[in-house]
Amino acid sequence: METSIHRYLENIDFALDHNRNQYHSTAVLDRLSSLDLPANSRIVALTEKDLFIPILTHVYGEAELGGVSCIVSSSRLKDDLPAIERDKLLGNRIIKEILHELGHTFHLLHCRDKSCLMHYCRSIRDVDRKVMGMCRYCSILLEDQLKRG
C-alpha cells in the first residue's frame, strides 16, 4: 500500500462549534471527501483539536463507513500518559485509532474482541488494551473487502 502525506487543509476552523469549543468531525469528513483523490485511495486527517459529533460529548475519531475519509484527534489520546515512554505510547494510541478509523472506510464495524483494533474504545484504557492488529474475523472481513476492490 502506498502512503503519502499532504497538506490538504490549512486548518479545521470551519468545523469549530463556538458553544462547545470543539470541532465537528463530520464537517471535516465532508470537506475531505469533496477533494479530488486518486481512485481506491483513503484519506486520514490527524488533528490535535478535540472532536465531537452533536449527540456525543466527544469522539477520538470518525470515519465514513465504506467511504474514503476519516479523522483522528490526538487531543484525548494524550490523557493519562505515564511519565516514561510517553511519546511511544501516544504514538501507539494514534496509530491504533487511525487503523481503527481506516477499518471503517473498508466497511468494518466495531468488534466485540477487546484486543482487536476494531474494538470501540470507551476510555483511554480501552485504547491501551488493544493490540496493534485485528482479530481473525476482522482480518478476514478486511481481506474480503480488499479483494472486492
Partner: peptide
C-alpha cells in the same frame, strides 16, 4: 443532525 450523528455512530457498532 442528531439523527445522523447518532445513527452513524450506532451503525459502526453493528
Amino acid at each position: 443532525i442528531m439523527r445522523e450523528s447518532l445513527g452513524g455512530w450506532l451503525e459502526r457498532d453493528g
